[in-house]
Structure formats: C-alpha cells, structure tokens
Simulated assay, not measured.
Amino acid sequence: MTRPIEALISLANLRHNFAQARDLSPAAKIMAVVKANAYGHGAIHVAGALTPLADAFGVASLEEAVELREAGIASPIVLLSGVFGREQIHEVARYDLATVIHSAEQLQLLLDTPLRRPLDVWLKLDSGMHRLGFQASEFCRAAQRLRAAKQVAKLVFISHLACADQPAQSLNATQLATFRRSLEQLNVRNDEALSLANSAALLTRPDMHFDWVRPGVMLYGVNPLIDREPLAAAPALRPVMTLRSRIISIQTVSAGEGVGYGETWRAAENSRIAVVAAGYGDGYPRHAVNGCPVLINGQLAPLAGRVSMDLLSVDISAIPDATVGDVVTLWGEGLPVETIARYSETIAYELLTGLNQRVKFTYV
C-alpha cells in the first residue's frame, strides 16, 4: 500500500465550471487559463477535458505550451507572458502558438525576426496595474507597427485588471476607461479583437467581457472574489481538486499535555488526537494554525499542533467513531480550499499550485 495522500481531480466539475463561464458570457470566446500546470491540477488532463469546449488555452511560458502540443492538444495556445528571447519566436511559429507582446523589447524582437508564417499577437496595454504592458502613450504606436508587420496574422488587444477581485474598487472603472480610450484612438478593425475580463470580472462585470474572456481560477472551483457574498446569486462553482489522506494513528492525550513540535497546542481536557499522513512536504501549508479544519466522516475537526513535513495532528474528540484508516479531506469537496487559505494567511492559488510529486493525482 502506498502513502495515502491523494489529489482527486473531478473533470466533471471542471466542465461544469467551464459551462458557468460560458453561460455568463455566451457571446464571447473563452480562453481557459491553464498556466502553472493548470493551477496545480495537471495541464495535460485539464486541457484534454476542455479541448472540445474552450476556444483557446492560456499558458505562462513556451515550455508549458510545448508540453500541451506534444500531448496532442491542437487548440490555439497563447503565451500570456510572451517570449523571453529571439530563439523562442521561431519556436512559437514552429508549434503554431500565439503570443502576447507587452514590451518594446518583445515588439522589436518580433519585427526583427523573419518568419515562414505570421503569428497571432495579443498586444498588451498597461491600463493601471503597472506590471506588464505598454503605456497608453505607446500603445497605439505599437499597434500600428504590428498592423504593418508581415510577422503578424491577427491582433487581439488585451489588458489585465489589478483589483477585479474587489468589484467596488475604483481602479476597475479607471482601467476600463483607459482601455476604452486607447481602443478609440486605435479605431479597432473588424478582424481585431479585445480581451479584458479575468475570472472575477467575468463573474461581476459584463461590461468588461468584450470578445474574449480569460477564466482561470474559477474553472477550478475557486471563488476569485475577496468578498464571497457577491457570488451568492451566481451559479455554484464546484471544487475540481479534493486533497485527501487517511488517519494512520490515534493517540490519547491527557489534559495539559502538548502535541507536536514546540507544543503549540495543549489539550484543555483528555483528548483523542488523529495523526494524518499529510504535511508541508506534500504541499499542505505549514502555517495553517491550530483550529484549521479538516473533514472526517462528514464532520469538521481542528488541527492540533504544528504541521510537520510528513504528518499533521487533528483533535477528533468530538468524532468518537473516527478510526485508523478513515479518509480525511484536507480541502475540496465539503471543505473549500479558500477556508484553508484563510487559516494559513495565504490564497487558494498558492495552495493549489503548491502540491508536489509525493501527492498521487487521480482523475475521474
């Protein structure tokens, strides 16, 4: 028997969440973002499940795109961070990819590189996030140069939102206005397209949907909004990953005794402590605090003591029927990963992408 920690990936839930994105923006094309190994879920399996549905896939690097191509994924793939050197432009053409251009350096690399066939290019505007993209004063000139370039087939104009997870934030309106103003100066052509909405804007801002929407974390069942309440009336997202393990030992701890490294948890009364085969060596957050919940036999139980490399301890005093071998859900079905993130002072994205090779992945 192998070590019991496992990530169960529901491709049915993935397709359900994609359908919610489609229902929210039926007129737009959908780029399913599968960067960072599909947010830790397995890019090849995720792209394979969504290939009949998605209009394109978004990745962060050439290496991520090549992995999909070599696995037989033939759908359009966009490099969201663009290329990192001249040699990569030839690889983009070789593998029939599209690329973002977000800087003068990338633009010049493309224009200086003869290609056998033109590329689809996504030109990025910095509308206010101040991370990647051309400033508004440079954006129109960059677009005109690309329009005239033999290396370019189709153009999409793109920007990224800094605070879409906070729908009331004033920067959202400012970025939309900057995007619209830059596009008005361009006089966008019929064969050109626009893209602004990420997961959060897809859920909350129909005025930002334009021609392409780019759902990422919502596809994996995570609410992208800082305030979860605005999604109450929206279609329910379903968790795609359920991380689970099993109880491998049960200890009886007397009142006043401590558990784990540093004895950061002490029993207020005689307690039953379950030891679970999961730890930060698997990607479970070491900084999860005492009280962070797990799910055992349909009941929540709190962490008791520090998470160690291979093990964590849980107070099961309130679950008298819990026994060695019982399944322990660490996050996923019945226990949102966002909850674990809050107890760990991090975000769901980090937890999902942080699992490592010790965790077995099972696709259903």
Rank of each mutant, 00 (worst) to 15 (best):
A268H: 10
E269T: 13
E269A: 15
N270D: 15
R272S: 12
R272Y: 13
R272T: 12
I273K: 09
V275A: 02
A277K: 11
G283Q: 06
Y284V: 04
P285A: 13
R286Y: 11
H287Y: 12
A288Y: 03
V289R: 14
V289I: 15
N290Y: 10
N290W: 10
G291S: 02
V294R: 03
V294M: 10
I296W: 03
N297F: 05
N297E: 05
N297D: 12
G298K: 01
G298E: 05
Q299K: 14
Q299D: 04
L300G: 05
L300K: 06
L300N: 00
P302E: 10
L303C: 04
A304Y: 11
G305I: 09
S308I: 12
L311K: 11
L311N: 08
S313R: 12
S313I: 00
V314N: 00
V314Q: 05
A318F: 02
A318E: 00
I319N: 08
T323P: 01
G325P: 01
G325L: 11
G325K: 08
D326G: 07
D326Y: 05
V327T: 14
V327K: 04
V328W: 00
T329D: 00
L330E: 06
V337G: 03
E338A: 07
A341H: 02
Y343S: 06
Y343E: 00
E345M: 09
T346W: 07
